[in-house]
Amino acid sequence: MPAARSADWQLLREEDGASEFHAATLPLELHRADAEAYMHGLTAEPPCVYVVMRESDDADRPLEMTLVTASPYEAQDYADSGEELVEKVPMPSGLVAWVREFALAHFKEEEFKKRRRDKRTVGEAEDGIGDPRIAQLTDVYRSPALVKKGRLQ
């Protein structure tokens, strides 16, 4: 509920044995670095915010409201942890416009660049971790093949 006052599990209504509560009022913060995630989230039908919650030991407040985010990527990270519950809530049209305006102002599409492999052979560069400049009786890291050929002493 945009612009809602503070609430702590305030009962809004009861119908047919179901109760609807205003559990908490949390700020929705937008960050420039997440503009791509917001753009992706706005393409969903309908666009949503994600409420992150944790279970509580208090019977009167069964869930602790932790975070509200417009980033589906951040919401997925919390969902993957398994410690939090993540609920999808449709955005009101005014909030959609606000998030879209912010995302368009800060989103910069990066051009895809295909990586090229190095032409050098990695296996020839290093043959074991032992330092050949230090005389040792044994070195567990030195390659046995080099010792047999007499290249190292």
Results as ranks from 00 to 15, higher is better:
residue 66 T to I: 09
residue 125 A to L: 09
residue 129 I to S: 09
residue 115 R to F: 10
residue 91 M to A: 08
residue 114 K to Q: 12
residue 75 A to N: 02
residue 97 A to K: 13
residue 29 E to M: 13
residue 23 A to G: 06
residue 72 P to M: 00
residue 141 Y to E: 15
residue 151 R to V: 13
residue 144 P to Q: 00
residue 121 T to L: 10
residue 117 R to I: 04
residue 38 Y to M: 10
residue 107 F to R: 07
residue 77 D to S: 12
residue 93 S to W: 08
residue 76 Q to S: 14
residue 110 E to V: 11
residue 40 H to P: 06
residue 99 V to P: 05
residue 87 E to G: 10
residue 120 R to C: 03
residue 145 A to D: 10
residue 88 K to G: 03
residue 84 E to Y: 15
residue 100 R to T: 01
residue 68 V to A: 03
residue 44 A to T: 09
residue 70 A to C: 05
residue 128 G to A: 00
residue 101 E to L: 15
residue 130 G to A: 14
residue 142 R to S: 12
residue 11 L to Y: 01
residue 46 P to Y: 00
residue 67 L to C: 06
residue 134 I to C: 02
residue 34 D to V: 02
residue 74 E to T: 15
residue 125 A to C: 02
residue 145 A to V: 11
residue 84 E to T: 13
residue 98 W to Y: 15
residue 149 K to W: 01
residue 151 R to D: 09
residue 145 A to G: 05
residue 131 D to I: 00
residue 127 D to M: 06
residue 95 L to H: 07
residue 90 P to L: 00
residue 95 L to E: 12
residue 143 S to F: 07
residue 83 E to T: 11
residue 21 F to W: 15
residue 70 A to H: 01
residue 97 A to N: 09
residue 53 M to S: 03
residue 40 H to T: 15
residue 106 H to D: 04
residue 65 M to T: 07
residue 44 A to C: 08
residue 35 A to W: 03
residue 107 F to V: 14
residue 55 E to N: 11
residue 111 E to L: 07
residue 83 E to A: 11
residue 1 M to V: 05
residue 6 S to H: 04
residue 36 E to K: 06
residue 125 A to G: 03
residue 132 P to E: 00
residue 26 L to D: 01
residue 50 Y to I: 03
residue 47 P to G: 02
residue 42 L to N: 06
residue 122 V to G: 00
residue 84 E to Q: 14
residue 91 M to R: 04
residue 45 E to Y: 01
residue 98 W to P: 05
residue 4 A to G: 04
residue 153 Q to V: 11
residue 131 D to G: 03
residue 122 V to W: 03
residue 70 A to E: 02
residue 2 P to V: 02
residue 60 D to S: 13
residue 85 L to E: 11
residue 27 P to Y: 02
residue 6 S to R: 04
residue 116 R to K: 11
residue 152 L to W: 08
residue 124 E to L: 06
residue 126 E to R: 09
residue 121 T to Q: 08
residue 153 Q to N: 12
residue 126 E to P: 00
residue 10 Q to P: 04
residue 153 Q to C: 05
residue 52 V to R: 00
residue 29 E to H: 14
residue 31 H to G: 05
residue 142 R to W: 05
residue 83 E to M: 10
residue 153 Q to F: 10
residue 74 E to Y: 15
residue 108 K to I: 15
residue 146 L to M: 06
residue 118 D to T: 14
residue 15 E to W: 09
residue 3 A to I: 04
residue 102 F to K: 08
residue 141 Y to N: 15
residue 57 D to Y: 05
residue 115 R to G: 13
residue 114 K to M: 09
residue 45 E to F: 01
residue 140 V to R: 11
residue 105 A to S: 10
residue 115 R to P: 14
residue 28 L to M: 05
residue 15 E to H: 13
residue 138 T to Q: 13
residue 104 L to G: 08
residue 82 G to Y: 02
residue 89 V to P: 14
residue 75 A to E: 01
residue 52 V to P: 03
residue 23 A to T: 14
residue 116 R to G: 05
residue 46 P to Q: 00
residue 145 A to W: 05
residue 9 W to C: 09
residue 106 H to E: 08
residue 42 L to Q: 04
residue 102 F to M: 08
residue 97 A to E: 14
residue 14 E to Q: 10
residue 96 V to H: 06
residue 93 S to K: 14
